[in-house]
């Protein structure tokens, strides 16, 4: 029983999320584990609610834009840092979002967005989430690049491949999975992010985390559990897929 304590903690870690699952399929209206019956009515409520769907739509638009932008910028940065050893200042700046408390980040970005006239729109939130995602993207891609043999590029060039051919035949096959993983990470970070979105979003601009906060401040119905399950599934799918891609590549 040497792993007893760990087992208890791990079960407790998973328990709250597992407990929400049965509540989300109750046919009653009470948030309790005594289910009068099983139904998908609260999932129906979730998918038919214009508020939740609008929030989901916003979250996907912001998440996908963040994913593309952060991966593009992060890939360039990682490539540059791989080619020439980065200075400590440079990596310090890139890792800045990791070491500032979220409420301070939110406040600073709110000032920046107000100065640039970007509050209440997609652009401001996408740029802010991109900043938050860049350290993770760079970390992921730099790890992949360190395993990537630069000699392959020279070999391709010596065999007469121009850059397009080496991109297609050398870079994409070896770095593709890591880039896909980085995109999924960036998406998940944006998809789950609440604090900065609270500071930057306009009054009607709800993302899923923000709508969830509004939902629990309102009357509690099992819809919130259905929403929690759906949002969790998206995050777990994105992150799980990213981890699987990295494990396959590594």
């Amino acid at each position: 029983m040497r792993f007893g304590f760990a087992a208890i903690v791990l079960v407790l870690l998973a328990a709250p999320l597992l407990a929400v699952l049965p509540i989300s399929v109750t046919s009653g209206t009470v948030l309790s584990l005594h289910l009068p019956g099983v139904s998908l009515r609260w999932y129906g409520e979730f998918f038919e609610s214009s508020r939740w769907m609008l929030a989901a739509c916003n979250s996907f638009i912001i998440g996908c834009s963040t994913s593309v932008l952060a991966t593009a910028l992060g890939f360039m940065a990682a490539w540059g840092m791989w080619r020439a050893a980065p200075s400590r200042l440079l990596s310090g700046v890139l890792n800045l979002p990791l070491v500032v408390p979220s409420v301070i980040t939110g406040l600073a970005m709110y000032f920046a967005a107000a100065a640039a006239g970007l509050t209440g729109g997609y652009t401001g939130i996408v740029l802010a989430h991109t900043v938050l995602a860049i350290p993770y993207v760079v970390l992921t891609l730099l790890a992949a690049l360190r395993r990537f043999d630069a000699g392959l590029l020279r070999a391709a060039a010596s065999l007469g491949a121009d850059w397009r051919v080496s991109l297609r035949r050398v870079v994409v096959p070896s770095l593709g999975p890591a880039v896909a993983a980085a995109m999924l990470f960036a998406f998940a970070i944006s998809f789950d992010e609440l604090i900065v979105a609270l500071f930057l979003a306009g009054p009607g601009q709800y993302t899923l985390p923000r709508q969830m906060l509004a939902g629990i401040s309102d009357i509690l119905t099992p819809t919130i559990c259905a929403a929690a399950v759906v949002v969790s599934l998206v995050s777990v799918l994105a992150m799980g897929l990213a981890s699987a891609l990295l494990r396959k590549a590594g």
């Binding site: 709250p16 407990a19 998809f191 789950d192 969830m212 939902g215 919130i224 969790s232 995050s235 799980g240």
Partner: peptide, 10 residues
């Protein structure tokens, strides 16, 4: 992997 707000909601 699951959002902090989702876990707080739970």
């Amino acid at each position: 992997w699951i959002s902090i707000i989702v876990r707080t909601t739970a």
